[in-house]
Amino acid sequence: MARGEVTINTGLCQGCGLCIGFCSRGCLELSPDRLSDMGSPQPILAQPERCNACCVCAWLCPDFAIDVYKHTGVA
C-alpha cells in the first residue's frame, strides 16, 4: 500500500529528470505525452504504490516543483 504521494507542479517543472534519477524506489517516470507550456517533458508518478514519502525528490528538485504528502491514519 502506498505510504506517500508526490505532486508535481507542471508550471514550475522544467523536465530536468533529476527526481527520476534520485528516486530509489523507481516511482517517477518521464511522460512523453505530458508536456509543460515550455515544451519540456514532465515526470509523472508512474508507480504510486511504491512511494514511501522519503522526500528525496523534493529536496533535490531545483525548481521547487515537488510537494510530498504522507498518508496518515487508517480509513
Binding site: 504521494e5 514519502a53 522526500c55 521547487f64 510537494d67 504522507k70 498518508h71 496518515t72 487508517v74
Partner: peptide, 13 residues
C-alpha cells in the same frame, strides 16, 4: 485515511 503534506516549498520562496 488522510493525506498530510510533510514537505513542500519553503514559505520564504
Amino acid at each position: 485515511m488522510s493525506l498530510e503534506m510533510i514537505y513542500g516549498t519553503p514559505s520564504l520562496k
